[in-house]
């Protein structure tokens, strides 16, 4: 049976992982390659590495990190952060990444999704959508609006139509982050995730808000997510991956049990 995936996300700066609460206060959580290998060994189903610096110089450091990760781990991993062109994607795949995630660049230039899907195949193109529930404009009703720049900058795009559009353009997966729940540890945005997943024919990775093992159970049932992503709760060992997978398995959620 196809299993639900547990995905730790490693925000990377200078080869080390960091995770900010609501993307602001950064804390150091260790060496990225070692941490990735540890998660893989513990049963993580996939890994995401986000380059949160993304200057030209750091980009070379990041590509070197991607190469070390690919050499070391034997599960799929996605890389993202500042990727905005066919050349960027080519460099990351060539370094050994299995998938790349694009975010702001897709909003700026939606045709990029089509280009990348055509060039590299949909299977390796993840479109990240950061969304926030806000008034759609002055005196306008509240809606789920796509944001860029780490969730700070609102766009004109409504989240559900944008999710449908990126699928039509050839995205292979959607990484959906609710900026309302991110960093709160109060649970994933279940209703929104269920709406997006129910309207999509590609997998949805839910992100933002995981604080307990029950939150993952909810996002896979009520939230209809295909994968659940989290960062600090794994990095600071508030939840251990083997315990989480054992718990979910016990709750009847299909899980890849490795031990």
């Amino acid at each position: 049976m196809l299993t639900k995936r547990i995905i730790p996300c490693l925000d990377v700066k200078d080869g080390r992982t960091v995770k900010g609460v609501n993307f602001v206060n950064l804390r150091d959580a260790g060496d990225a390659v070692e941490l990735g290998a540890l998660y893989a060994e513990q049963g993580a189903d996939e890994l995401v590495f986000l380059d949160i610096t993304a200057t030209v110089e750091d980009r070379k450091t990041f590509a070197e990190l991607v190469r070390r990760v690919a050499h070391t781990i034997n599960i799929p991993f996605t890389v993202g952060g500042g990727i905005s062109s066919v050349a960027d994607v080519s460099a990351m795949l060539h370094a050994g990444a299995d998938k790349v995630s694009i975010n702001s660049a897709a909003v700026r230039n939606p045709d990029l999704i089509n280009e990348l899907a055509l060039e590299f195949g949909s299977q390796c193109i993840v479109v990240a959508i950061d969304t926030r529930y806000v008034p759609a404009g002055p005196d306008m009703p509240w809606e789920h609006i796509v944001h860029t720049h780490g969730g700070r900058k609102p766009t004109e795009l409504r989240t559900l139509p944008w999710a449908k559009e990126v699928e039509e353009r050839g995205a292979g997966e959607i990484l959906l982050t609710s900026m309302d729940t991110d960093g709160t540890k109060a649970g994933f945005a279940l209703e929104l995730t269920a709406t997006i997943s129910g309207n999509a024919n590609i997998p949805i990775i839910a992100s933002g808000g995981a604080g307990t093992m029950e939150h993952f159970q909810e996002v896979f049932t009520a939230g209809k997510a295909d994968a659940g992503l989290a960062a600090s709760i794994f990095h600071f060992r508030e939840i251990d991956i083997p315990d989480l997978k054992q718990y979910l398995h016990g709750q009847g959620i299909p899980m890849r049990m490795t031990k």
């Binding site: 049976m1 196809l2 299993t3 299977q123 999509a200 024919n201 590609i202 997998p203 295909d226 994968a227």
Partner: peptide, 9 residues
């Protein structure tokens, strides 16, 4: 969903 993507036995 199609593609069939992820871990299966």
């Amino acid at each position: 969903k199609v593609p069939h993507m992820g871990w299966n036995s």
